[in-house]
């Protein structure tokens, strides 16, 4: 048995498709949904742990890629260097779970770890390079 943790980003047209059902049924995988944010008609995000045979996992991943779901390995941690951050806000533009947000009083950047899907999108979005991602 093998295990793999991944982040899925699906385009709006796939949000209402039975993707999870197919992963379980067709590829014989055990799924553990760690985090998810799916709103109808909008881009969806899901952090998944796949458990199953090596072949099943590989085929499942190929199926996801074929239907145009973006698959990324799950980051272990997001590190934000608060000393270096200028609170410009460029990173919140790509953080759809709103883990990164601006405090509306102080206009300082706030990072709510509990909402973070560890997708890593904020890393290239920060012009000052103060956000880093650690992988397993």
């Amino acid at each position: 048995m093998a295990k793999k943790r991944i982040v899925l980003t699906f385009p709006p047209e796939l949000v209402d498709q039975p993707i999870i059902y197919r992963l379980v049924k067709d590829y014989d995988l055990v799924l553990n949904i760690l985090r998810a944010q799916v709103t109808p008609k909008e881009e969806g995000k899901m952090v998944l742990e796949l458990e199953g045979g090596k072949e099943g996992i590989n085929k499942g991943l190929r199926y996801l890629e074929d239907i145009k779901v973006d698959v990324q390995p799950l980051a272990k941690d997001i590190k934000l260097d608060e000393q270096e951050c200028t609170s410009c806000g460029a990173c919140i533009a790509v953080c759809s779970p709103k883990a990164l947000s601006m405090n509306k009083e102080s206009w300082k950047l706030e990072f709510d770890r509990d909402r973070c899907l560890l997708c890593g999108l904020c890393v290239p979005a920060c012009p000052l390079g103060v956000i880093q991602v650690e992988f397993d």
Binding site: T86, S87, C88, G89, C91, W107
Partner: peptide, 8 residues
């Protein structure tokens, strides 16, 4: 999202 820092 803002790109200029009101904080600074």
């Amino acid at each position: 999202a803002p790109l200029s820092s009101l904080y600074k």
